[in-house]
């Protein structure tokens, strides 16, 4: 049976972090829309950013899709559409390694410019530094895990993935994580921890990725009444209506 620590790590901690993740974003969106930005530092430094930033972002987007595939789609489903285990792993590892290396190289470039460009360093908050540390560790361990598939024989799709989905089914299976290799365990814990940090960092910009741009008209009009200050009025603080008069 599980020790208390195992139970905390693989059952309680994920729920705490996911709760912080969800409520934190709701709170941040309601109370800090003004702070909701990617906080670009391109004005300060562009030569490294020019290659490192797209490399990191496109890499991490590929990594994200890989996780959707690996964690979200059960093994039985891929088998049902005729993708053999060997085929799946070949694809997962080859694409995963390329995306992972791209992400890490981009990440290193970004951290380098952040550390060694004085203006960028000056614009870096403590939360940024903590976030970079956790994110960096998660990415490195993720690449280690992907690479370990070449030598090891741990089938994460029967272990980690099932545990991950079980959290959302509300019938968590912590035993599966207890049985996972250490590198997977650390990767998972740090990643879960990152979700708890997420709403309080600049990472929030992910959730306002401007995909609607493709569909909206170019020129936007707003009437003045649709834009009445930036603070929404709380209940009980409605304004007394003015008697119309010539100004």
């Amino acid at each position: 049976m599980n020790s208390d620590l195992d139970l905390f790590l693989w059952l309680i901690f994920p729920y705490i972090c996911l709760t912080i993740f969800v409520l934190g974003h709701v709170w941040r969106y309601r109370y800090d829309k003004f702070g909701w930005t990617s906080r670009s530092s391109q004005m300060y430094e562009r030569d490294i950013l020019r290659w490192a930033n797209p490399m990191f972002h496109f890499g991490i987007l590929a990594v994200f899709l890989g996780h959707v595939m690996g964690l979200g789609v059960p093994q039985t489903w891929t088998a049902a559409v005729g993708i053999s285990e060997g085929m799946y792993h070949f694809l997962a590892i080859s694409i995963g390694v390329v995306a992972g290396i791209g992400t890490i190289v981009g990440f290193v470039g970004l951290v380098y410019r952040r550390r060694f460009t004085k203006a960028v360093m000056g614009a870096t908050s403590r939360m940024d530094k903590l976030m970079y540390l956790v994110l960096g560790l998660v990415i490195v361990l993720g690449l280690v895990n992907t690479g370990s598939q070449l030598v090891g024989d741990y089938n994460y799709r029967g272990g980690v993935s099932v545990w991950f989905r079980s959290i959302f089914y509300l019938s968590p299976k912590p035993d599966l994580m207890v049985a996972a290799p250490l590198s997977f365990q650390i990767h998972a814990i740090l990643a879960i921890g990152l979700f708890a940090l997420w709403p309080f960092t600049r990472l929030v910009h992910v959730f306002t990725a401007p995909l609607g741009y493709v569909f909206r008209p170019y020129i936007l009009y707003r009437t003045r009444d649709a834009h009445e200050g930036s603070r929404s009025r709380r209940r009980g603080w409605d304004k007394v209506d003015t008697i119309p008069r010539r100004r």
């Binding site: 170019y218 020129i219 936007l220 009009y221 707003r222 009437t223 003045r224 834009h227």
Partner: peptide, 14 residues
């Protein structure tokens, strides 16, 4: 306004 991906920039109708 046209270049803003978010749609944060607008022209006041009035």
């Amino acid at each position: 306004v046209a270049a803003c991906p978010t749609g944060a920039i607008y022209k006041r109708a009035e």
